[in-house]
Design a binder for these strands. Sequence first.
DNA 1: CAAGTATTTAGAACTTTTTCTAAATACTTG
DNA 2: CAAGTATTTAGAAAAAGTTCTAAATACTTG
Lengths: 94, 94
Amino acid sequence: MAFADTFKALSDPVRRQILDLLKEGPMSAGDIGSHFDMTGATISYHLKILKKADLVFESRDKNFIYYQLNTTVLEEIMLWISSLKGGDFDAESK
Amino acid sequence: MAFADTFKALSDPVRRQILDLLKEGPMSAGDIGSHFDMTGATISYHLKILKKADLVFESRDKNFIYYQLNTTVLEEIMLWISSLKGGDFDAESK
DNA sequence: CAAGTATTTAGAACTTTTTCTAAATACTTG
DNA sequence: CAAGTATTTAGAAAAAGTTCTAAATACTTG
């Protein structure tokens, strides 16, 4: 939702790992969970936070809910970070 | 120190605001504190976390401790984020 | 529609983070 | 060195975040 939510969402290692998994493509909640030693309920909690931060979105098919990366918000984060580095983004990348 | 510490450090709004302040240049702990409605002890706590994450470093002069941005770590963060966006950083920025 | 699978929600326990107050340390200068 | 200013440390209280178990919801298919 907001800038602050995105940073909060990214601050947890489990959630970053979930995002890494989703680089490969959409994945059901259950599949995601199978990569962790945690209950499905806990995974669901993390997915909710990622969803709230607009870092993922879901789509339903049959009995599954598939989660997918949403990278649009990352742009904003990159801009903020590069602003710390003293200005323009493109100018720095040679 | 580690990747995870950097994200943790960036997850707090106060700390992000401190980094924003430091864009203008080095600042003493007291000066930084004067921008917030918090005790100096709390500011000191946040500075410690930023320092541990290598996002700032300090230098002493007279009776003051000046804090300064250290942007080198941000590179790593940017790389991780851009990797989520499906690969190369420069290739995406047109 | 009943039974089964997938996922989420609720609520409690535990852990971590943030903040404060009070005291300690560090340095400067008369 | 004493007094003053700047900052940090310690420890406690409060707030926020993470995880679990148990139960609820949602959807699918025989």
